[in-house]
Design a binder for these strands. Structure first.
Lengths: 139, 139
DNA sequence: TTAGAGTCTCCAGTAACTGGAAGGTCAAGC
DNA sequence: GCTTGACCTTCCAGTTACTGGAGACTCTAA
């Protein structure tokens, strides 16, 4: 059994994060030592790693809960996992498209900005013009 | 002079947001009516629109402050604006690259997932494998 | 006079942590 | 036996940019 520091190290996560995951019930410590220390066994460490990976892919904590369920439940179907992933992929694609829009518009504007001592600037002009309607959906 | 509702409507922003911008000192109301109502003139409305546009491009509030300075200061140089924009563009490109990585890896995994009743799933397997190191930098 | 719409301030919540304070625990070294 | 340092604990606050709601005031129109 590892204390939180050992588990965090093994999972390559900050101690604070591991404690946070325990707090929100995502990955509970197996037991408490008699002095109230959190203790983690190997399978808990594996779960921590699993979550670190899932988070790195941008899955939200709530979705991570679902994925963890799938991971732990031997009766899970690959269908569910694929569906979750597909939804996430769709969001990623949306975000990428929005960023691309932003990028293109902004690049276009920046290309036409002299970038010198003079004050006139197409970027500012664009932002100031009430008639413009910049690309949406960045968040 | 418009009350906050009128200004918000003219700038196409929620009233709450306009009040928030006043609170944080981004765009102060011109005056208060004797009853304590915020009052906005046309130039304040223009600033609100300016900020709405800048925010739509993903500029943070703090960067918006700088851009607003540039907008209001006739002695500004286009250099500064271009620099701010270039930094932002770099961040956008970074994020796009990270998302692309994510997308590709996840797509690859999803393609190899049967998505049927069986439990085995390369996505779960990937997430569970401690040796994997998923793409970084989503946030 | 009363209903409705608009405004005010203040407080809490969002997502997923992160930082810090104040304090308990443990092993090693003197 | 005592201290030092590295652990661990809980609790509270801050991050970003709002958003929602409560409770109270103001104004206009019927």
């Amino acid at each position: 059994m590892l204390q939180i520091g050992g588990a965090a190290k093994a999972a390559e996560l900050p101690v604070k994060t591991v404690r946070y995951y325990d707090e929100i019930g995502l990955i509970k410590a197996n037991t408490q030592s008699e002095k109230g220390y959190r203790l983690y066994d190997e399978s808990a460490v594996h779960k921590l790693i699993f979550i670190r990976h899932a988070r790195a892919f941008g899955f939200s904590i709530e979705v991570c809960r679902e994925l963890l369920d799938c991971y732990q439940n031997p009766a899970r179907t690959s269908q569910e996992v694929k569906a979750v992933t597909a939804r996430h992929l769709a969001q990623i694609r949306e975000k990428m498209a929005a960023l691309q829009q932003l990028h293109d518009t902004l690049t276009h504007l920046a290309d036409h900005c002299h970038g010198d001592e003079r004050p006139d600037c197409p970027i500012i002009d664009y932002l100031a013009d009430p008639d413009n309607d910049p690309p949406t959906g960045v968040l």
